[in-house]
Simulated scan of single mutants.
Amino acid sequence: MKIGIVILNWNGLALLQRYLPSVVLHSQEHTVYVADNASTDASLSWVKEQYPSVKIIEMDENRGYAGGYNVALRSVDEEIICLLNNDIEVTENWLAPITTLFRSDVTIAAAQPLLLDDKRRTHFEYAGAAGGYLDRLAYPYCRGRIFDQVEENHQQYNDSTNLDWASGAALFVKKKAFLEVGALDEAYFAHQEEIDLCWRLRHAGYKIAIATDATVYHLGGGTLAALNPRKTFYNFRNSLYNIVKNDHSANWLGILFLRMVLDGLAGLQFLFKAKPAHFMAILKAHASFYGGLRTMLQKRQEVKRYAKKTSTKPEVFSIVYQFFVKNRSNYQSVK
């Protein structure tokens, strides 16, 4: 089973110089691609000179995470594709557990490795930790990370388990299943596209999994820092998109309303913390959400056409309540 490892890049020369060597070194039986989102730095010339074995996919404009990968994956023939951030250091033999996992169950369509923090290697990394889940209100959380509280890794999550979503920082997906559910939604541009994709894969009857014996180290914030209001904008808007497209329960409108109320409270909290730019980002996120609502309702009907009747009940109704009211800040305490 061959894997196509696709690294999306935009003006990331320094990150490629730091992280690409480990990917090339530890992926020699597979194919490494750099998909470039119209960089203006020396990224491509450096890759071509230093790593001629790496295949280059060039795009004529910055299409973001979703659009960039959708274009790039048309040029990738491998059965399994890894969507890998350009700020990931991989470890020796990291791909063997992944191929074993996919061979073990044909219903697995997407998976991730264990994500540890490159800046603090004893701890999980925010973007995916030991696998992602959603509460009833579509707030994402992870085994190893609740909101901004990240746990130290004591191998407490080394068991195999089904996930709600796998991290887009190092997302392995079957190309056939990826195309079957319509690829990544380019309306998202950045952030939470992998959650939407995995939710649609689950609707189609596939499983999302983790190979905990495969480890990578993620720098995080390599493209858009955590404190950037643009990240706040995308996360809030795209999370609402996820509910409209993928929550097919009878009371989804009530869930959407409650979520928007909680968004308002989050905005007030930003104001109290003297972060007006993030408050404005939430307002803009809601305005953009209303602007795209009609399109998302159409996509909801598209998903319903292939969705199975089976569904899983979220382990947690409200991670916000568990974290801010019950003061529970790790996965074991909230599940």
Rank of each mutant, 00 (worst) to 15 (best):
V47D: 01
L44F: 08
Y51N: 03
L16N: 14
D41M: 00
T31S: 10
D41T: 06
M59G: 09
Q28E: 08
Q50H: 13
N37A: 04
T31P: 08
V54H: 08
Q50T: 15
K55I: 11
L13Y: 11
Q28V: 08
V24N: 03
P52F: 02
D36G: 00
S22L: 03
V32Q: 04
P52I: 00
N62S: 06
L44P: 08
Y51R: 02
Y19D: 02
Q28A: 06
N62D: 15
L20H: 09
S43E: 00
V32A: 01
N62R: 12
S53R: 05
V54G: 03
L16C: 13
L13D: 04
R63D: 08
E49H: 14
L25N: 11
P21S: 00
Q17T: 05
E61C: 05
L25D: 14
H26T: 07
Y33Q: 05
N62M: 07
S39M: 09
K48A: 15
Q50K: 15
H30P: 07
Y51P: 08
V54F: 05
E49Y: 14
V54N: 03
S45E: 15
L25I: 08
D41N: 05
A14F: 10
E61K: 13
T40M: 01
V23N: 07
L44W: 07
D36W: 03
Y19K: 02
L20M: 01
V23Q: 05
R18F: 04
K48V: 14
S22N: 07
H26N: 10
D60Q: 05
L15Q: 13
H26Q: 07
S53M: 00
V23F: 06
E61A: 05
V34N: 10
V34Q: 08
S53W: 05
E29D: 14
D36S: 01
S22G: 06
P21G: 00
S39E: 10
S43I: 00
V32G: 01
S45G: 05
R18K: 05
A14V: 10
